[in-house]
């Protein structure tokens, strides 16, 4: 009896966020006429895209039982690196893209290496990388914004394809790839195993360190994608960009049902978490609520989501 009822509750918790999201959208559509218009929805999608990319990355990390606080700094470093190579009539577009993504992957791999070799908790290691990354961004840019970027580069974050903002297209592609990695590949299975019970995963023959290396590297890569999008959107490499982004990304993952104790979480949940954050801040904007109140609302939602999730799990 007990197990049946608790697993049902678990389902409710899992779908709860989705239902809440739909409900909020309906209420907003009815109360604010502007909300449910194509242009507003595209604005939301565009605004959400960067946070969602980072949230996908950190979802992988949290599923393995880790955490990554260096996302925001990686956004800054990779943005600065990409901008450095993105001035008009210098390099082809692929060069700044590749440089940015490589920088993000390298920092992520560095996180993974230190975490697996030193046994220092991920919280501490990535807290360190967060500061190192910010410093690197300031060093590389000499503390100044890097502007005058090529049109091709600026298209990534600011362009439209058939009326759809390009960031939304990137977001959809990234979502599909991340979902496939998590659900269909051996690596994804191993992520759940490592986060669900690391000693048992090791005793089952899984190379736990390899899994963690992959996860932090992928997280770095997705942060870099976020960094490039941001740089392109604001047409400037900003060494101070991205501060606090890691917390929004972690919030999206948690609202979406990823447990910070590891072993559970889905990309769909994270996407909904990110959309929920986007929709709420958008609607509060439409309702002329100041950003001060928005922060309070967001905090309440984060705690509420975890409480809901906790109700679903008694085991």
């Amino acid at each position: 009896m007990n197990t049946i009822s608790s697993s049902r509750f678990g389902k409710l918790g899992q779908y709860g966020i989705f239902l809440a999201f739909i409900l909020i959208c309906i209420v907003l559509a009815l109360s604010t006429p502007k909300f449910f218009t194509v242009s507003n929805l595209l604005i939301i999608g565009n605004q959400v895209s960067i946070n969602a990319l980072l949230a996908f990355g950190v979802t992988f990390v949290i599923i393995t039982g880790g955490i990554d606080l260096s996302l925001g700094s990686m956004v800054a470093v990779t943005g600065v690196v990409a901008a450095t190579f993105a001035h008009p009539d210098t390099f082809p577009l692929l060069v700044p893209l590749f440089a940015g993504l490589a920088a993000g992957s390298a920092i992520g791999a560095f996180n993974g290496l230190v975490i697996t070799k030193s046994k220092v908790p991920p919280f501490i290691v990535t807290l360190g990388t967060m500061t190192i990354g910010r410093g690197l961004a300031l060093i590389l840019s000499k503390g100044r914004p890097i502007s005058n970027l090529s049109d091709a580069f600026n298209f990534i974050g600011g362009g439209n394809v058939f009326g759809i903002p390009f960031p939304i297209i990137i977001l959809i592609i990234a979502f599909v790839i991340c979902s496939v990695i998590l659900n269909k590949t051996v690596l994804g299975r191993y992520m759940y195993a490592v986060g669900g019970n690391e000693p048992a995963a090791r005793a089952s023959g899984i190379r736990v360190s390899n899994v963690k290396m992959w996860v932090y590297t992928i997280c770095g890569l997705l942060s870099a994608l976020g960094g490039i999008l941001l740089t392109s959107r604001i047409t400037t490499g900003q060494p101070n960009a991205g501060a606090g982004f890691e917390l929004d990304a972690i919030a999206a993952a948690i609202i979406g049902g990823t447990s910070t104790s590891g072993g559970t979480g889905t990309m769909t949940g994270t996407l909904i978490g990110a959309l929920l954050i986007g929709v709420i801040s958008n609607s509060l904007d439409l309702l002329n609520v100041t950003s001060y109140y928005q922060q309070v609302v967001m905090g309440v939602i984060i705690i509420g989501a975890v409480v809901l999730d906790g109700l679903g799990r008694k085991d």
């Binding site: 051996v186 759940y192 195993a193 019970n197 000693p199 048992a200 005793a203 089952s204 023959g205 072993g263």
Partner: peptide, 23 residues
């Protein structure tokens, strides 16, 4: 502690050591 991963399914636990045969 070492045997199984509680939140994973029977299937996912069972093939954990031999996933190489099913890829």
């Amino acid at each position: 502690g070492l045997g199984f991963i509680p939140r994973m399914s029977v299937k996912d636990n069972m093939t954990l050591s031999s996933i190489g045969n099913h890829r």
